Amino acid sequence: MNTNEKKFSRKLSPAKSARMVETIYGCKWSLTVYQLLANGINRPGEMVRSAEGLSTKVLNDCLKRNVEFGILERIAYNELPPRVEYKVTPFGMKFIRILDELEKLQDEIDAEY
């Protein structure tokens, strides 16, 4: 064996980011929520009314997961009646750009077959 040969160790996938992508794609509503936010719809009630088939419970679960990952920020206003809004964090903007690139890759794959 040549002593100049470089040995490579097994490359592992990035655990947390891979889990984030898997979880977000596993939630069929996350991409719709990002689209709603991009169109200025940032209140949960308005999101439910704007997306056909989206329930309040499913939306709340989706929003909670996105907040836990740091993709979205929840802003609660100290008002009566209570008002809550969501916005994409700077980290979330980076993450959504990656998802956009994955979508472009899928479009290329679909065009080939």
Score class of each variant (00 low, 15 high):
E46K: 15
E46Y: 13
E46H: 13
M47T: 09
M47Q: 13
M47P: 11
M47H: 12
V48A: 00
V48Q: 03
V48R: 01
R49E: 13
R49T: 08
R49C: 02
R49G: 07
R49K: 14
R49V: 02
S50P: 04
S50F: 03
S50R: 11
A51T: 08
A51K: 11
A51N: 06
E52P: 08
E52L: 07
E52Y: 11
E52I: 06
E52T: 11
E52R: 13
E52H: 12
G53T: 10
G53V: 11
G53I: 09
G53A: 05
L54W: 12
L54Q: 09
L54P: 13
L54T: 07
L54E: 08
L54F: 12
L54A: 05
S55L: 05
S55M: 05
S55Y: 04
S55E: 07
S55P: 06
S55G: 13
T56A: 08
T56H: 10
T56C: 00
T56L: 01
T56M: 07
K57T: 12
K57Y: 08
K57I: 07
K57H: 08
K57R: 13
V58L: 13
V58G: 03
V58S: 14
V58C: 09
V58I: 14
V58E: 12
V58W: 04
V58A: 13
V58R: 13
V58T: 15
V58M: 12
L59N: 03
L59S: 01
L59C: 00
N60G: 00
N60P: 01
N60Y: 11
D61W: 04
D61G: 08
D61I: 00
C62Q: 03
C62S: 15
C62H: 01
C62V: 02
C62F: 02
C62T: 14
C62Y: 01
L63Y: 12
L63D: 13
L63V: 06
L63F: 11
K64L: 12
K64H: 14
K64I: 00
K64W: 10
K64V: 01
R65K: 12
R65M: 09
R65S: 11
R65T: 03
R65P: 00
R65G: 03
R65C: 02
N66K: 03
N66I: 03
N66G: 11
N66T: 01
V67F: 05
V67Q: 07
E68W: 06
E68P: 08
E68N: 14
E68G: 06
F69P: 03
F69D: 03
F69M: 13
F69W: 14
F69R: 10
F69C: 00
F69H: 10
F69V: 01
F69Y: 15
G70D: 05
G70F: 10
G70H: 06
G70A: 05
G70K: 08
I71R: 05
I71A: 02
I71Y: 09
L72C: 07
L72T: 04
E73A: 09
E73K: 12
E73I: 04
E73H: 06
R74A: 11
R74W: 01
R74K: 15
R74P: 05
R74G: 02
R74Q: 15
R74F: 00
I75Q: 14
I75T: 14
I75R: 15
I75L: 13
I75K: 15
A76M: 06
A76D: 15
A76F: 00
A76K: 14
Y77I: 04
Y77P: 02
Y77F: 14
N78V: 04
N78D: 13
N78Y: 07
N78E: 07
N78H: 11
N78C: 02
N78P: 06
N78S: 10
N78L: 01
